[in-house]
Design a protein around this nucleic acid. Structure first.
Lengths: 203, 203
DNA sequence: GCATAGTTCGAACGATCGTTCGAAATTGTA
DNA sequence: TACAATTTCGAACGATCGTTCGAACTATGC
């Protein structure tokens, strides 16, 4: 059964690339058949349909991100390391993983609402765990902040990191490590270090 | 306003709401007919087709954002005001405008690549001007930074601000002004103050 | 009344989509 | 070789999409 798994993996990877380029809804099963070299009907031997294709791409990718983040955090002390260093590790892992798997991560970010019913629910469950992971890190790093403000800050950070599929070129002038450093510096410098009590606008 | 223009405006607004909820590609002209109360064929009296509908929504919205930002910057000194204050004004305007026009701004952010050909080009031209506007502000605020790093920082900021369509509820616990303040604080504290320590502002 | 321009819509068209199905081809096993 | 399981695919189906067209309705001026 080894050639079967390889073929399925290749189908998922190439489909992810097309989904990332053209978008999920405007990609046809015929497009995927052309890219994979299979026939239109042949793909249905590996996958129940188009939506399961998207689901398996997202679930596979999201599981890897989550596992990778947890592994990256273990490297800087499970629960007793320096909170700021752990947050840094989380950011660096997310950004470098994103840069290394642009297609899948774009599909994960941009097609977050293209699944329906149970499939949508399953992916959202992983997302919940991932968001909780970051919010836990923010609790350790800014314990005096309100939970609401920490949650907003978490999404602001995710915004910086996930938005890169709209502009970033991993082969361009900025290598992934440097981008991760920039985002980490901005967020940590702005949310953690700069505990300036003065509000932004007069109030 | 003539009844024709009112009807067209209503069509664009309601279509924007449906595009924001369901996505552009999975919205059918029949969906829009149901929401606007018009017949399927009736909409083609106001618009050449589905893509022109998206184009007019995006162009109308983007033009307003750009004009609003320029107006907001005039309020804090055209080219001789405090650079940090002008950046703050830009951020606050973008975020509060986003919160006040969630549907249109989500369509602008999420369907940025759903247009084709000349229409795509036209919207991108406005986007270019808008991005240039922010990069100019960053030049005034961090003149020692490299252009590449400033550009990346600009997109990081846009990421924080545009991502809010994925999570933010303007009627929730965080009002738009507070969200704008949080994002401005994070970005300015992390990108500006962290590398060029200056006296406290805003107090 | 008539004529004109502006506005609406039912009905249908052609195209394209995701999916199915039975058969053909291939591989594995004895 | 023969036979079964696995894998592939041509061809077509039904559904749904964006769009079109000509007729019908409305409002206004004469």
């Amino acid at each position: 059964m080894r050639p079967y798994d390889e073929r399925l993996d290749q189908l998922l990877s190439r489909a992810a690339k097309v989904f990332a380029d053209q978008g999920y809804h405007s990609t046809t099963m015929r497009d995927l058949a052309a890219v994979t070299g299979m026939s239109l009907a042949g793909m249905y031997y590996y996958v129940r349909g188009k939506e399961e294709l998207l689901h398996r791409i997202q679930e596979r990718c999201f599981t890897r991100v989550l596992a990778g983040a947890e592994r990256a955090l273990e490297g800087v002390g499970r629960g007793h390391g320096d909170p700021v260093e752990r947050l840094q590790a989380f950011i660096r892992h997310h950004v470098t993983f994103f840069a290394a798997h642009m297609a899948e991560m774009k599909v994960l970010s941009h097609e977050a609402n293209s699944l329906t019913g149970e499939r949508q629910r399953k992916v959202n469950a992983i997302k919940r765990r991932y968001v909780d992971l970051l919010e836990g890190l923010l609790r350790d790093v800014a314990p005096d902040e309100t939970a609401v403000e920490r949650s907003a800050a978490a999404y602001a950070l995710f915004g910086m990191m996930n938005w890169i599929y709209n502009w970033y070129d991993p082969a361009g002038e900025i290598d992934p490590e440097r981008l991760a450093g920039l985002i980490a510096r901005v967020f940590i410098g702005g949310f953690v270090d700069a505990r300036s009590p003065s509000p932004v606008h007069g109030g």
